[in-house]
């Protein structure tokens, strides 16, 4: 349990120039190509697309935002787009 306290638990350099998905407090969600980041998890993403209209079966609408700086404090979730897919219920027998 002797982790260096200052090191982030997520090494963002492995996502450099890869597309990642970021969610924010308030419910917004974007994907973009990671160009830069800092310890506070502020991010620079390029070719950003905001995913509008979650929880609806209609075709997901997006809007393009281009080059964006995302503020770390409002980020709630981060994951690579590679390996991200929608699936059927994986919990065959619930409860």
């Amino acid at each position: 349990m002797d982790k260096p306290k200052r090191e982030a638990i997520l090494d963002l350099s492995k996502y450099a120039n890869e597309r990642i998905r970021v969610k924010f407090t308030g419910g917004r969600e974007v994907t973009g190509v990671l160009k830069g980041f800092d310890q506070l998890l502020n991010l620079v993403l390029d070719e950003v697309e905001e995913n509008l209209q979650t929880e609806s079966d209609a075709d997901p609408k997006t809007r393009k935002l281009g080059l964006v700086v995302l503020r770390g404090p409002t980020i709630t979730l981060l994951s690579p787009v590679d390996g991200f897919e929608e699936i059927a219920n994986p919990f065959a027998q619930q409860e």
Partner: peptide, 19 residues
């Protein structure tokens, strides 16, 4: 998702403690 009717698989993810 919150309603329990949509599912996704992710290789990995980072989640903020505050959320």
């Amino acid at each position: 998702n919150a309603d329990g009717d949509k599912f996704w698989k992710l290789k990995e993810c980072y989640i903020r403690g505050s959320t």
